[in-house]
Computed example of a mutant assay.
Amino acid sequence: MLIEIWSDIMCPFCYIGKDHFEKALAQLSFKDELEVVYRSYQLDPNYHHQAGDTTYSYLSQSKGMPIDQVRAMTGQVVQMAKQTGLVIDFDRSIPANTFKSHELIHYAASVGKGTEMKGRLFKAHFEEGLNIEDESVLVTLATEVGLDAAGTKEALSSDTYAYEVKQDLNEAKQIGIRGVPFFLFNRKYAVSGAQPTDAFVEVLEKSFSEWRESNPKITFLNPDKDAPSCTDDSCSI
């Protein structure tokens, strides 16, 4: 069953939501029958990092809020993350354009490393204060999850994965997504926000049960295990 998740690396609730969602997956007996695909979303596609910008100054300007109010707001998010075991450090985090990060996630997904890359980028941004708009930073992070440096550089310089990012962004508009994280289960049920783990378990069980009814599992019945047959490599003649 397909599960699609629209999120942005700059979004702390996407980081928290990812953690809650993965904890829900770990509780399921059918988790191996789920395909999780991360889709791209940009909260502020027009922003590009400028030297001296901090998360506080960025949020103050973009939301029109005093710095003290921004600090109080982000402090609540820090505590929310702490409760789930994550570290979010707004004193260190650097606001950045995330388009290249999304390209990297698509490239990583093409070799089965999409989830790992997503998690590494979140940690780099929120905990380590790295500039995820910097391509040299992205290449280093990619190698840390097992991707080839040369392949990563080529992926980031080509239009292949930029096209995929743009496709995700366009589809988000068509669906009507206006906030992230946004979870779409089997193209039927949608959940938004950093929901509690139990809520994710509930919707996963409901959507999978309905999906299973229309996609029954094949049961093999072989009364005679020695009956002659052919495989891809040979025939038992």
Rank of each mutant, 00 (worst) to 15 (best):
L169I: 05
L221M: 13
A24G: 14
V111P: 11
T219R: 10
D89R: 08
E33K: 01
L28N: 07
D224T: 02
S236F: 03
A51F: 13
Q42T: 05
G85L: 00
P216A: 06
L28I: 04
K225W: 06
S234C: 00
K217D: 04
K188M: 01
T197R: 14
M65F: 12
L204W: 12
K18E: 13
P95I: 01
K118V: 14
P66E: 06
D232A: 14
F21V: 12
G146L: 08
R39E: 06
P12A: 01
V139Y: 01
K166I: 10
N97M: 08
K173W: 04
G176F: 03
D159T: 12
A109H: 14
N170P: 03
I9G: 03
T140V: 09
L59I: 13
R92S: 11
L141T: 03
G129P: 09
V77Q: 03
D68E: 15
H48K: 15
H125R: 00
S60T: 03
K118E: 13
D134F: 05
Q27I: 12
D134Q: 01
E144L: 02
E210A: 05
L138Y: 02
E116R: 09
E33M: 05
Q27Y: 03
S60I: 07
S234G: 00
Y15C: 02
S192Q: 11
K118A: 09
V165W: 01
T98V: 04
I177M: 11
K123R: 01
M65I: 11
D159E: 12
T152H: 01
E210S: 02
S209Y: 08
S157T: 07
T231M: 12
D168H: 09
D91H: 10
G17H: 04
R71V: 14
Q50W: 13
F126P: 10
T160W: 11
C14G: 07
D91K: 05
T98Y: 01
G179V: 07
L156E: 01
G179H: 03
S110A: 11
V201M: 15
A142T: 07
E154G: 11
C14N: 10
A172H: 05
T74D: 02
V111N: 08
H49I: 14
Y15G: 00
I177F: 09
K188V: 02
T84D: 04
F13S: 05
K18H: 07
A72Q: 03
F30H: 04
